[in-house]
Design a protein around this nucleic acid. Structure first.
Lengths: 206, 206
DNA sequence: AGCAAGACATACTACTCAGTATGTTGTCAA
DNA sequence: TTGACAACATACTGAGTAGTATGTCTTGCT
């Protein structure tokens, strides 16, 4: 249970996570049942409960995976020696396409994050929620650090850091709400959105 | 508990709507039961089902009320003769405090909007969902119009209008996600947040 | 007064769905 | 070959909940 990160994801498990993300995105986390996820897989409950002890853990692992996706992509592009605004720009241009690539996962975490701590029944679920919270804190910390650096260095204007941080994070996650992939969209559409959002975010801080 | 409604007399129906908004905000729309709402009122199901034909309609009317709150406040402050950027600034400075004043309602609409159209069982619910969609479109139209005017007039730079609009709307609604009223917050905290968000939004468009 | 209707409360039903208990099949090692 | 275990499927239970049917009280209205 503890070594979820280090455990190599079995093919079957990731298939279930992918299906769960899709089904939860479509019907909503609370409305969609385990049977719905199983039906999407052409399987039955047995398969899911063989890999996950409860629905709460399944949802939590979907969220955890969503947080991992972005962190693994964005953290490496940060250059401690580079100016804060340049770092933030490349971070956002990396963040947006990765989020849209793994869209179902992020739709789920957006739904489930509200009221995740309300009723953590079992201890394992509580631990998972804590890990999700920590992961999110860690990821937000990347942005917080650059924004603070930019403010201290004069690249960004001084303003309430918490408000600014939350605003920027919601701004770069905005496509999760409104974006739906279309067959007729230009090949570089996602990249152009990423560029536009990076421009808007940086101007908002300047 | 305080009355969220100052415009209308506190009728039994609005009391139910207020309680529903609070309870749905706390526990989540799908998790919270009608009995939970009734318990919050010190009443029973009978009272709620006397005024609302189904839970779906109750949720929908909460969302509809949320949309009304902001529209009624923001629409009057628009001056067709004023520059687009000035209009947008005062719109945001009006929007944010009103949203935070009626926070539970907007938390509900944020939860329920995802997957509102999925399974509209009855015809009355479908009609209500259509009205919510129209109301939202109308409200977004206020912002869209000013942003387009600003782009045409040179106050704002040219960029994808849809992306810009969605970004601004999510930016000004960001406090719905992270804000929780605190006893030790300064009296003018909400107004200062509103000013900061207006600044960020306008710079993002410039 | 007396009646009708509104505004609820109470008690019940029907149904969904998370979780479990148990059965079945394939694989691999000794 | 067999036994042991992983990876499921099948069938079932129990709890919670949306919705209903019906009873009760109060409030105008004539």
């Amino acid at each position: 249970m503890q070594d979820l990160v280090h455990t190599l994801p079995s093919t079957s498990k990731t298939q279930i996570l992918d299906a769960a993300a899709r089904v939860f995105m479509q019907h909503g986390v609370d409305v969609a049942s385990i049977d719905d996820v199983a039906r999407d897989l052409g399987a039955t409950k047995g398969r899911i409960y063989h890999h996950f002890p409860s629905k709460g853990v399944l949802v939590a692992e979907v969220c955890l995976r969503a947080a991992d996706f972005t962190y693994r992509k964005v953290a490496p592009v940060i250059d401690p020696a580079a100016p804060a605004d340049e770092n933030l720009r490349v971070m956002i241009r990396t963040h947006v396409p990765e989020v849209l690539r793994t869209l179902p996962y992020h739709k789920v975490i957006r739904q489930a994050y509200t009221g995740l701590y309300q009723k953590s029944t079992t201890a394992t679920e509580r631990a998972l929620h804590q890990r999700i919270h920590d992961e999110r804190d860690r990821y937000e910390g990347l942005f917080r650090h650059q924004i603070r650096r930019g403010m201290d260095g004069g690249a960004f204007r001084n303003q309430n850091l918490t408000v600014a941080l939350h605003s920027i994070l919601l701004l770069v996650n905005a496509p999760v709400v409104w974006y739906t992939p279309r067959a007729d969209e230009p090949a570089d559409f996602v990249d152009r959105v990423a560029h536009q959002l990076a421009d808007m975010a940086l101007r908002a801080l300047t």
